[in-house]
Structures are given as C-alpha cells and as structure tokens.
Design a protein around this nucleic acid. Structure first.
Lengths: 248, 248
DNA sequence: CGGTAAGTTGATCGAGTTCAAACTTTGTGG
DNA sequence: CCACAAAGTTTGAACTCGATCAACTTACCG
C-alpha cells in the first residue's frame, strides 16, 4: 500500500475487511483529494438540498437527522472518521435528511460520479461499498428494534455499546473508556427519548456500576451485562466476504 | 424485452427505474429459475441461520423481524412481490433477522454468488441494486423517525401510506383501496405499539373519515391529511438515476 | 468572573400498556 | 352448508413509564 494512504481513515476502515489492491487504493485515493474543515454545529446539508458531493469523514463526528413539523428531531445515524457520508442519499434528487457536524470535522468532498467510476472499474470495491452500506443498514434496523421495543435504560445501554463498537473499528487498541461528544439532547434525539430520561437512565446505569462517567468520558464496566440487557450485537464482527469477486 | 420476462415481478419493478438491456434482463432471469411455494406463516429463515440463498418474491407478502429475549417482536421490514429478500444479510455469516411468510408466497431462490456475477458483469444493474437497497434504507430511516417521535395515530397513518406507496409500484393502476393482509398484531409489532392502540388508532382515523375499512380492505380517503399528519414521503418517487453507468 | 450551555432533580400528567372479557370474522371438517 | 374452533378485533378499567414543566446545579469558555 502506498505511503500516502497510510493515514487515510477510509483505507484504514476498509482495510479491516479486505486487502485492497493497487487499483482499489488508487480509486479510493481519488475520494480524498480535497479537504474541508467544518466547525462544530455547522449544517453541511439540509433535507431537500440537492446533493452534489459525498464526503469521506477524515476527522470528527457528524449526525444525520430529520426535523418534524413541530420541531422535534430524530437523529438517524452518527458518522465517524472513515465513514462515507451520503451514499444513502445517492439515489435521490434531494437529501433525505439533514447533516450536521457534532464536533469540529475534517471532510473530503467528492462528486457522486466517483461512485460510478468505482462501479465500473472495481467489482471488488463495489462489493465492499455495498457491504458497508448493508452494515449501516443493520445498525439501523437494530436501532429500529431498540426504539420499537425497549425501555429508556435499555436504549441508553444499547447506544453506548453501538458507539463503542464503531470506535473500536477505527482504533482496535481502544479499551472501555472513550470520549462521548454527544449531549444528552443528542442521545435523546437518537433514541426517541427526552434529555431528562436520558439523564435518569445514565445515572441508573452508573449507580448499578455498569458504567462510569467523568467530564465527557464514558467507561463501560460491564459490557456483558449491558449487551445482555439491550440485546446488542456487534455488526462489525462476523462479516462474510466469501462471496466477494476476487481481486485481479 | 424477451417475452418470458413480461410476467416477472422483478423485471416489472426494476423496469420502473431504468430500461433494462438484454444482458441485464438475462442476468435477472437467472434469479428466477427455480420456484418454491411457502404457506402462510412459514418461517423461511431464523436469526443466526446461515443463509445460502436469497429470494425473489414472485407473489405474496413476507416480514423480517427480530424477537427479544422476553418474546416481544419488532417487525423490521415488509417484503412485497418484486422484492429481493436477503440482500441486507449478504455481508453477514448469519441472518440478522427472522423471515416469515405473512401470506401464501411464491419465491424464487438463487445463490449468493449470483450477486457476484451481477457485480462483475453489469455496472448498470449493480447501480440499480444499490439504488433499491438505498431506497429500502430510506424507508427504514423513515420508520425510525416514526417510532422515535410520533404518536400512535400518526404511526398508523404512516404505515398505511407506506404500504400503499409500495403497492402502487407494482400496480400503477391501483386506486386508494387495497387489501391489507396484516393483522393488528403485525401492525403493532412494526410500529412499536400494542394491538390495542392500533385498534384504537384505526378507529379514530375511520371516525375522522380519513380511512375506511371492510373485511380486510383499506381505503385511504384523504391521502393529503394522512401524509401531512404523519410526515410521509413517497421514497419511490424522485429517484435520480443520472449518475448511473450508461448501458452498453 | 460572568454568562451560557449542559446536566440534575422533583412534581405532575397523560398516552399507551396491560389484563381481561366480549364480540366478530374466517376457515374447516363432518 | 352448518357448527364449531381458531384467529382477529373491540371495549373498558387500572396502571405505569416516560413526558412535561420548572427550578436548580455544574461545567465550560471568552
């Protein structure tokens, strides 16, 4: 792998799943040519915007969300370094959701047409993109089950594990303590709750020694119990790439 | 288009979005070689099963769902004629959800490896499959918003519109009356409610003359009001295929 | 140090759940 | 084609979890 790709979050994330050939690495490099900085709280795009560029997240966290008529908000997805943001909106004329920077972010915009290039040039990379999209979808349906059928405490436990599992993908050496830049309002809007019940749930979990908190950091003391109570499944494990087209 | 594909639900659905060339039609035909009948209520696969075959739905309705430890159920997705079932589970060793026939079904099983063939042979069809998967994902995130932030009445209104919009895709001539083979338990499990509140909501909607019901059929009297109250968006409209690879 | 955003705590309220019973529709075999 | 069973729907009463509202505390940042 060429030197300049070593520090690419995208290659880092994708390399978890398959070995990238030279052609593939080159195709991916094209996605990270340009760099933009976005300050915390910046609205990257709005529902109904027509999307020109997708983004590779180089650094920072973002959130996709929808706003209801009465102003209530539902966070649909959280995006981390190494994610490609906007693939889900590719087939639509207009964005299906809002996108906002939760922390300061470094993004690499690239045009929709680059996806077409990948589809035409690399079946293997295509399969990988497809796989990533399906993993995102699985995370999504997991949350559907959480919102549909779980108590506030279980929901909070679940999202902590979800965030942790995603961070581990980018930092395999990560322990059980991590920085959580989401406010309790953010967490509530992701889980279909209010900030008040998120606060209560977090304190309950802390009282039961399942988690610890200190100035923005979370420690998962008992992943086992947390997983059990929330039915959490780590979707980044158990990926089957046996059906992939072979590298040339 | 060859005669034998005229009555393919898959080609019918996909043809809505792009013109299928001969190569593509041939690739698709390979997915419908074999036919299986499944009776209403049949469990097609279970969570944790390893999946050999995907299915094209030729006739009938199916549901993907998860079961929690305590037995509660969350329906994740409803599958209709023309759908490809299992794409979302492609990257995983094990099924992420259960799959059951809601009505008697006619299915066409085909091996995972056929997807690989499509990825290698037809970028255009690949883009289309990707698009379909992203539309499904959009339907999914819409439901996420519904479960996270909407009242029982709004949820029920939303799912009726969702089902209707999907049926229209297969039957463009469909009016505002359609058969709904879902029990109120099914609807409740899709919306994170109980059968009781689904019953109440339906009756409220009927009392307000927004819908009518008679022996398993639903009539949407006021799509406008229903859409407004539930923030419904028809995801099958406004598909942008401008970025697609061109047909050869 | 002062002001703002974020988190905590407590009281009250209500939408939806739970449980249970009555009622309706559908399907099946005698 | 009827009788009966099974499945699905409706209705009502009691309850509960989380929402709402509001006051208060803490952390952060210029």
């Amino acid at each position: 792998m060429a030197e300049e790709q070593k520090d690419s979050c995208l290659v880092n994330k994708l390399g978890h799943f398959i070995n990238l050939g030279d052609v593939d690495a080159e195709l991916l490099a094209a996605l990270e040519k340009e760099i933009q900085n976005k300050g915390r709280g910046t609205e990257i795009w709005s529902q109904q915007d027509s999307i020109e560029n997708l983004f590779v997240v180089k650094d920072g966290w973002l959130a996709s969300y929808m706003i209801l008529e009465d102003g209530r908000r539902q966070i649909l997805e959280i995006h981390y370094p190494g994610d490609i943001v906007g693939l889900a909106d590719l087939p639509f004329w207009h964005a299906t959701s809002h996108l906002k920077a939760i922390t300061d972010c470094v993004l690499c915009p690239f045009p929709k047409s680059e996806v077409d290039v990948i589809f035409r040039r690399s079946p293997r990379l295509t399969a990988l993109l497809f796989t990533l999209a399906m993993i995102d979808k699985a995370v999504n349906t997991d949350r559907l089950r959480v919102l549909g059928r779980m108590s506030a405490r279980e929901r909070v436990a679940h999202i902590l594990l979800e965030v942790h599992s995603r961070l581990q993908l980018g930092q395999p050496e990560l322990g059980f303590t991590f920085r959580l830049p989401l406010s309790q309002f953010d967490i509530a809007d992701a889980l279909g709750l209010t900030n008040v019940s998120v606060s209560n749930s977090l304190q309950q979990l802390q009282k039961d020694s399942l988690i610890e908190r200190s100035n923005g950091f979370i420690t998962l003391n008992e992943c086992e119990s947390l997983s059990k109570m929330s039915g959490f499944v780590n979707r980044y494990h158990e990926i089957d790439i046996g059906w992939f087209p072979h590298a040339k």
